[in-house]
Amino acid sequence: MARKFIDCREVPSEMNCTVAISADTEAEVLEAAVQHAVALHGHDDTPELREFLKGAIKDGTPPMEAPSRAA
Rank of each mutant, 00 (worst) to 15 (best):
Met1Phe: 13
Met1Thr: 15
Lys4Ala: 03
Phe5Ala: 02
Ile6Gln: 00
Ile6Arg: 00
Arg9His: 05
Glu10Arg: 14
Val11Phe: 13
Val11Ile: 15
Pro12Ile: 13
Ser13Lys: 09
Glu14Thr: 15
Glu14Arg: 15
Glu14Gly: 15
Met15Arg: 06
Asn16Gln: 14
Asn16Glu: 14
Cys17Pro: 09
Thr18Lys: 13
Thr18Gln: 08
Val19Asp: 03
Ala20Gln: 12
Ile21Asp: 09
Ser22Leu: 04
Ser22His: 06
Ala23Gly: 13
Asp24Ile: 11
Asp24Ser: 15
Thr25Ala: 13
Glu28Met: 09
Val29Phe: 07
Val29Ile: 08
Val29Lys: 00
Leu30Lys: 06
Glu31Ser: 15
Ala32Met: 15
Ala32Ile: 10
Ala33Lys: 00
Val34Asp: 07
Val34Glu: 04
Val34Pro: 03
His36Glu: 05
His36Pro: 08
Ala37Gln: 00
Val38Arg: 01
Ala39Ile: 06
Ala39Leu: 07
Leu40Pro: 02
Leu40Asn: 03
His41Tyr: 03
His41Cys: 01
Gly42Trp: 12
Gly42Tyr: 11
His43Pro: 00
His43Arg: 04
Asp45Ser: 14
Asp45Cys: 12
Asp45Leu: 11
Thr46Phe: 01
Glu48Pro: 00
Leu49Ser: 03
Leu49His: 07
Leu49Asn: 05
Leu49Glu: 06
Arg50Leu: 09
Arg50Gly: 11
Glu51Lys: 04
Phe52Thr: 11
Leu53Asn: 02
Leu53Glu: 03
Leu53Val: 02
Lys54Gly: 02
Lys54Pro: 02
Gly55Ser: 10
Gly55Pro: 10
Ala56His: 09
Ala56Ile: 12
Ala56Lys: 09
Ile57Lys: 02
Asp59Leu: 05
Gly60Lys: 03
Gly60Ile: 05
Gly60Thr: 07
Pro63Tyr: 10
Met64Ile: 14
Met64Trp: 13
Met64Gly: 13
Glu65Tyr: 02
Ala66Leu: 05
Ala66Glu: 12
Ala66Val: 08
Pro67Thr: 07
Pro67Glu: 08
Pro67Trp: 07
Arg69His: 09
Arg69Gly: 05
Ala70Ser: 04
Ala70Gln: 06
